[in-house]
Nucleic acid binder design. Structure first.
Length: 271
DNA sequence: ACTGGCTCCTGAGGGC
DNA sequence: TGCCCTCAGGAGCCAG
């Protein structure tokens, strides 16, 4: 399940292997992922090359001179750069072939991912235009969370997973960050002090930052034709630890559903 | 302006 | 062993 650190790791792994190469062909093997593939994608891309690969939230942005390919990994998507002759595996839905004999191959068993095209600046795309700040940027700190939370009665966990508030915090890192900050995931967002939001923002930055660092070791897998990107599993304290002892106080971690999502917290450490 | 619920899809895991 | 059922999850979308 690609969270922001996995998407960033993917970007870092893929970018140096595709930037500057001439695109020679596009292969689409599924009618749609989350949405239909763009029509005439080959006309837009063939003969072009990717000038750079950037990331906004969990969207990967492959920029050409004509426009930008927007790619989302959904929850089961993964990208590899392999020789074009590499046999297809199930759910290999999409290839971009390059001169030189390699291709960028998207696999996505659950097809929650997306491939889109825009000739406008990508930040003006409807899916990107209303997004909140990047969690690892200076624009994101406790003050921002505190301001945005004013009057909101939704659970703080739901609040920090809202991409209009801050992007890239999925279910795992939401639980984990709230655990680190000692905040109960069900607490109403509007009833948390500024000081505690500062702690939460720092916890989010630390958690995501550490995960990206941990992911660095998987970068080489992007050139291994047989390997999977193998999404790294950093040390988690709360997520998926139901009934396990809290690392801080040994109270059993509790699992509850918040906003249709499994959530994990320590009933003693988190208030 | 918010909030909560629904939806897409398939693999994994539990129960029998 | 094998089948069936349930659940998980990112995030857009819609209704209240």
């Amino acid at each position: 399940m690609p969270e922001l650190p996995e998407v960033e790791t993917t970007r870092r792994g893929v970018a140096p292997l595709v930037e500057g190469l001439e695109i020679t062909a596009i292969n689409v093997r599924a009618p749609k992922l989350r949405w239909p593939f763009p029509v005439r994608l080959d006309a837009a891309l063939v003969g072009q090359s990717f000038e750079c690969v950037r990331r906004r939230a969990k969207y990967l942005l492959f920029q050409t001179a004509r426009g930008t390919l927007i790619l989302h990994l959904g929850m089961s998507g993964s990208l590899r750069v392999v020789p074009t002759s590499t046999p297809l595996r199930p759910h290999d839905h999409f290839d971009i072939e390059f001169a030189g004999g390699t291709c960028l191959r998207l696999r996505d068993p659950r097809r929650f991912g997306a491939v889109l095209w825009t000739s406008e600046p990508p930040n003006e795309h409807p899916l990107l235009s209303a997004l909140g700040p990047e969690p690892l940027s200076h624009a994101f700190e406790g003050e921002h969370l505190y301001r945005r939370s004013s009057g909101r009665r939704a659970a703080v966990k739901t609040f920090i997973m809202d991409s209009r508030v801050v992007v890239g915090i999925g279910n795992i890192y939401a639980s984990e960050s709230l655990y680190r900050a000692g905040i109960h995931p069900r607490r109403a967002a509007g009833r948390i002090s500024k000081a505690r939001y500062h702690a939460l923002a720092q916890a989010i930055k630390n958690t995501l930052g550490e995960a990206i660092t941990a992911g660095g070791t998987t970068l080489r897998d992007f050139v291994n034709p047989d390997g999977d990107p193998g999404y790294f599993r950093m040390q988690l304290s709360a997520y998926d630890m139901a009934e396990q002892p809290c690392p801080r106080c040994a109270t059993p971690i509790r699992q509850v559903i918040i906003g249709q999502r499994s959530s994990f917290y320590c009933p003693k450490c988190q208030r």
